[in-house]
């Protein structure tokens, strides 16, 4: 399957992707790094909430929620759709 490039907010539930870069202000970037969002790590989209609310993803053994607006700044490569 050819790799496709996208951002975290575009993933559908069940999608697995690899983080390629974090395009974020440094403070927020640091927080995401501390939560395990590092380049090359695998992230799984678990669910998207209703009314354009936050998304729920798993990275390693940690599960986090983040807003779609912020997730758009996390660039990923889709591995399994």
């Amino acid at each position: 399957m050819p790799a496709s490039y996208s951002h975290l907010a575009a993933l559908q539930p069940g999608h697995i992707a690899i983080i390629t870069s974090l395009n974020l202000p440094s403070q927020f970037r640091q927080r995401l790094l501390a939560l395990g969002f590092r380049q090359g790590r695998q992230v799984t989209m678990l669910r998207r909430s209703a009314f354009a609310g936050p998304i729920h993803v798993r990275i390693g053994t940690t599960e986090v929620m983040l807003r779609r607006r912020d997730a758009q700044q996390v660039n990923v490569t889709l591995v399994r759709g």
């Binding site: 995401l32 936050p54 729920h56 986090v64 929620m65 983040l66 607006r69 912020d70």
Partner: peptide, 9 residues
């Protein structure tokens, strides 16, 4: 403020 929160098991 951006928002990211852990959802613990």
């Amino acid at each position: 403020d951006p928002l990211v929160l852990e959802l613990p098991p």
